[in-house]
């Protein structure tokens, strides 16, 4: 098959990147109960920071670490004033913030290249011969996915994760038991945003190009779809959700030849189908694919 291996590799790279991205959201929503509708902002901030720093002469590996940290710091910056708001208001602030970030990328050409975006930056693994580059990229992405998963697993199962879960359940209890709820929420956002930043940086390397259009609010909702599909509060579920989501996205991307439908219509149709599938999922398996049914019953 002509599309065979290289197609599957590029699909798996996207899967890995979005799995990391969604793990960051799952930390915030699934484990802490924070409603973040602007997750994509940190995806973009990580990518732009790394690329801009690299173009200013910072070695790429240092720029990567800096990009992750900057994304985390911006998470803190948004959360510090906004976290005192009620959950739904916080969500609106975050979606606004993500649009501000995108408009900044579009308009501040001196820094971000504006609508044309940025290219010409160093890419890790550039020593790999080009015919193997994609597979090396895949290995890097999957290794970072595994690392993110393992770090999160250790944290979620630790007393730190226990405090986050208590905040998700009822923050009055956390406070009454002596936990500084505000600080933990900030930490959760900081880490979630740093993880989003890492995913964004990987996506920049994959495309070898940055463009403000990659950071539409829709991308945040990709992460939400992935988290809900797999079952919120379940990191394995999130990874499975990302796999299913990108398999679906790529399969439907291929079809124009077979279907009597334009590609813009197809894009809209895909979202309609995903919406319908989610509704069906919520009807028959509201806890998500790997979510815990027992847990869900308790909400009623």
């Amino acid at each position: 098959m002509a599309i065979g291996i290289s197609y599957i590799i590029s699909l798996l790279i996207l899967f890995g990147i979005y799995a990391i991205f969604a793990l960051g959201l799952n930390l915030e929503w699934g484990f802490t109960g924070i409603l973040n509708f602007g997750h994509v902002a940190f995806f973009g901030i990580g990518a732009y920071s790394t690329v801009i720093l690299n173009q200013m002469g910072v070695p790429i590996y240092i720029a990567i670490v800096a990009g992750i940290i900057i994304a985390g710091l911006f998470g803190v910056l948004v959360a510090l004033p906004a976290m005192r708001l009620r959950g739904d208001y916080f969500a609106i602030v975050t979606i606004g913030f993500s649009e501000i970030v995108r408009y900044f990328m579009l308009n501040e050409e001196w820094l971000t290249g504006g609508p044309l975006g940025l290219r010409d930056f160093d890419i890790p693994l550039s020593f790999v011969p080009s015919q193997y580059y994609n597979i090396a990229m895949l290995i890097l992405v999957l290794a970072l996915l595994a690392l993110t998963y393992l770090i999160l697993k250790a944290l979620i199962n630790s007393p730190w994760g226990r405090v986050l879960k208590s905040i998700r359940e009822d923050e009055d209890v956390s406070k009454a038991l002596g936990k500084n709820v505000f600080r933990y929420k900030i930490q959760s956002i900081a880490l979630g945003s740093a993880i989003a930043g890492l995913a964004g940086i990987l996506l920049a390397f994959n495309h070898k190009y940055l463009n403000p259009n990659y950071y539409m609010p829709l991308i945040t909702f990709y992460a939400w779809i992935i988290v809900i599909l797999g079952g919120s509060g379940n990191n394995k579920g999130t990874i499975l959700g990302a796999l299913i989501f990108w398999t679906f996205m790529s399969l439907t991307r291929f079809s124009p030849g077979y279907l009597p439908i334009s590609s813009t219509d197809l894009g809209a149709l895909r979202m309609v189908i995903i919406g319908l599938l989610l509704i069906v999922l919520m009807m028959y398996k509201p806890e998500g694919l790997l979510g815990n049914k027992e847990e869900l019953k308790l909400d009623i």
Binding site: R162, S166, G233
Partner: peptide
Amino acid sequence: LNRMKVIENLML
């Protein structure tokens, strides 16, 4: 803390 185990409630 509904979606936490009884033991986790105490260990918090």
